[in-house]
């Protein structure tokens, strides 16, 4: 077994285990911690696939930004000993059945899929290549993404401002 295979299986177990942990956990912060495990493992898988830049971006934007935002949101909206929001039995059962069927179907298809693969080549300077692609071929999506981010920034600031616009707003300090 090559080093790559060992690394892949370890990371795959970590990613899948964390994802299953997300499914099982009832405590919302534990879910976030499990998500951290998945994000980290997927980032390392990117490193394994020689997508270094993407792996680092995954760590810095996802784990260092989005996930902190999520934990922040949890802290504002949940209490440790508040009501436990457990999924309803029936919903969980139906969901599990559907998802398991879907997973079985996907695996069956993927396993037998006649994939035409190429031998992976190492990009000599993938960071520069990504930069050139972003400002060349993908310039329009790149600019659109920046406009979107601006809109999101303004929108999120507007949505989250503590003005009592609604009569039903419960006065609560954050």
């Amino acid at each position: 077994m090559s080093g790559e295979a060992i690394a892949f299986y370890m990371l795959a177990v970590l990613a899948a285990g964390s994802a299953l942990g997300c499914v099982i956990a009832t405590n919302i912060v534990r879910m976030a911690l499990c998500l951290l495990g998945t994000l980290g493992a997927v980032a390392l898988l990117y490193f394994l696939m020689a997508a270094n830049f993407l792996g680092v971006i995954q760590l810095i934007v996802y784990a260092g930004g989005t996930l902190i935002l999520i934990v922040f949101g949890i802290m504002v909206t949940s209490r440790m000993y508040g009501e436990k929001l457990k999924p309803r039995r029936s919903e969980a059962l139906i969901g599990a059945l559907v998802v398991l069927a879907l997973f079985a179907g996907l695996v069956a298809i993927l396993w037998r899929g006649p994939w035409v693969t190429v031998v992976p080549t190492e990009q000599p300077n993938s960071v520069a290549a990504i930069g050139q692609a972003l400002l060349g071929t993908y310039l329009v999506p790149f600019e659109l993404a920046s406009v979107l981010l601006l809109a999101v920034m303004i929108g999120a600031a507007y949505l989250a401002q503590p003005a009592a616009r609604n009569g039903r707003g419960t006065e609560r300090e954050e």
């Binding site: 951290l36 980290g40 830049f53 680092v56 971006i57 760590l59 810095i60 784990a63 260092g64 930004g65 996930l67 902190i68 934990v71």
Partner: peptide
């Protein structure tokens, strides 16, 4: 960026 990312994850 890797070092920066590690700083970010530590906050968690």
């Amino acid at each position: 960026i890797f070092i920066l990312a590690m700083y970010g994850v530590g906050v968690l």
